[in-house]
């Protein structure tokens, strides 16, 4: 219920590039038991990000300059698969990520992103590899921009790659709208559905009354 609005973000796109990055790796469940949503950033990718002594693991690309703190993350297919934990989104946002670009996403993670203002962008893997190559060619000053209003990714060489986004989700994200308030505008339709259904499927109601 805390949606950050999203218009554009710019930064060096972090070439994480792994496939099937699951939400357990993004945030271990132990952290969700004891930590509030605003405190999860330091634990994002905890098992990959730190050495045993707690220092930063330089092999973990988001730890390297100039990627550290960048709002754009590049990944391969099925990013955010697995558990429904919304903490994965909170942790990513806590480490500064506002947009993940991948060929495909776990369905629940994808929905969770839009609830919070993290933009998931689907692009073909070839395009993602090219963004990574363009960034790698001059990592110090290569910048990628993601523009939600225009629905384009602007690569470091200035190429514009259009992306699809659901109109409903786009508006909600641009404006930071609360889903519950939007749904409750349909209160009459919900009441009408219930009345019809109680008549048609009384068994679905009586058994738990």
């Amino acid at each position: 219920m805390a949606m950050q609005s999203f218009t554009t973000v710019t930064g060096p796109a972090i070439p994480l590039m792994a496939a099937n990055v699951d939400t357990d790796v993004i945030i271990p469940i132990q952290r969700l038991v004891g930590t509030g949503r605003d405190g999860l950033g330091p634990y994002a990718f905890e098992r990959l990000r730190y050495n045993k002594d707690g220092s930063d693991n330089p092999d973990f690309i988001p730890n390297r300059e100039p990627y550290r703190g960048s709002p754009i993350l590049l990944a391969a297919e099925n990013f955010g698969c697995g558990s429904s934990r919304e903490g994965a989104v909170w942790a990513l946002m806590g480490m500064g990520v506002r947009c993940v670009i991948a060929p495909s996403f776990g369905d629940i993670f994808f929905a969770n992103c839009f609830q919070n203002g993290l933009l998931p962008v689907r692009l073909p893997i070839e395009e993602i590899r090219r963004i990574a190559e363009e960034t790698g060619a001059s990592p110090g000053n290569a910048r990628t921009t993601v523009d939600l209003a225009r629905q384009v990714v602007v690569t470091p060489t200035g190429r514009e790659i259009p992306f699809q986004v659901d109109g409903r989700k786009k508006e909600a994200m641009l404006q930071g709208l609360d889903d519950i308030a939007m749904t409750l505008k349909q209160a009459d339709a919900i009441a009408a559905w219930k009345a019809r259904d109680q008549a048609a499927r009384g068994w679905a109601w009586e058994s738990v009354a």
Binding site: S84, G87, V89, N116, T183
Partner: peptide
């Protein structure tokens, strides 16, 4: 569903 959708579901008994 995630946490935000769960709040929505509980408050409205519906989900988009």
């Amino acid at each position: 569903i995630g946490a935000s959708e769960l709040s929505h579901a509980l408050a409205t008994q519906t989900l988009p």
